[in-house]
Simulated scan of single mutants.
Amino acid sequence: MPRPKTPIAKAKLTGAYDKHPERYRGRNEPQGLAELGEAPDYLSETEKEAWTAFAEELPWLVYSDRALLESACILRARVREEDVVTASLLRELRLHVSALGGCPTNRSNIQVPDDEVDDEWAQFL
C-alpha cells in the first residue's frame, strides 16, 4: 500500500518541497485554503485550550482540518481532565494526532529555520 502524499503546505514548512520539488509537480491540491481560525464556541474551555495548543504545534492545519481537530481537542481535553485514562483513549488521540500530521515521525522531519544564527559558516553544515 503506497504511503499517503504529504500536503504541499506541510512539505514547504518541513523543507521537503525545496529538497525535492519534482515530487510535487503536477499536484492538484486546493489553492487558497482558508486559515484554521478560532476554536468553535461550543467547545469547553479545556477543549479550546487544546485547540490553541494544536494550532501552535501544527501550523500547517487549515480550515478543512477543523472537523478532525475538534474531535482531537475533545480527546485531549478528556486526557487532561479524567482521573483514569484508558489505553483506548490514548490510542484514539494518537491516531488523531497522526492523521493531523503531528506524530513524532513527522515532527522529526520539520526543520524550522533559525533566524538568529550568528555563525556565517552554519549554512554549510
Rank of each mutant, 00 (worst) to 15 (best):
M1Q: 11
M1V: 13
P2H: 10
R3W: 10
K5T: 07
K5A: 09
P7I: 02
A9Q: 09
A9F: 04
K12P: 07
K12G: 03
L13M: 10
T14M: 05
T14W: 02
G15P: 01
G15D: 01
A16M: 09
K19T: 09
K19L: 12
P21D: 10
E22R: 10
R23C: 06
R23I: 02
G26T: 07
R27K: 07
Q31D: 09
G32I: 08
L33E: 15
L36T: 04
G37P: 01
G37R: 02
E38D: 08
E38K: 08
D41A: 14
D41T: 10
Y42L: 09
E45H: 06
K48C: 09
E49F: 10
A50M: 04
A53W: 15
E57N: 12
L58D: 01
L58F: 06
L58Y: 00
P59Q: 06
P59I: 02
L61Y: 01
V62I: 13
Y63F: 12
D65F: 04
A67Y: 05
A67S: 13
L68S: 08
E70L: 08
E70W: 04
S71Q: 11
L75R: 08
L75F: 06
R76C: 08
A77K: 07
A77F: 08
R78S: 13
R78Q: 15
R80Q: 11
E81R: 07
E81A: 15
V84T: 13
V85A: 09
L95P: 00
V97K: 05
V97S: 02
A99D: 14
L100P: 00
G102S: 03
C103E: 12
T105N: 12
T105H: 07
R107Y: 02
S108W: 04
I110F: 03
P113E: 10
D115Q: 13
V117A: 13
D119S: 10
D119L: 04
E120I: 06
F124Y: 15
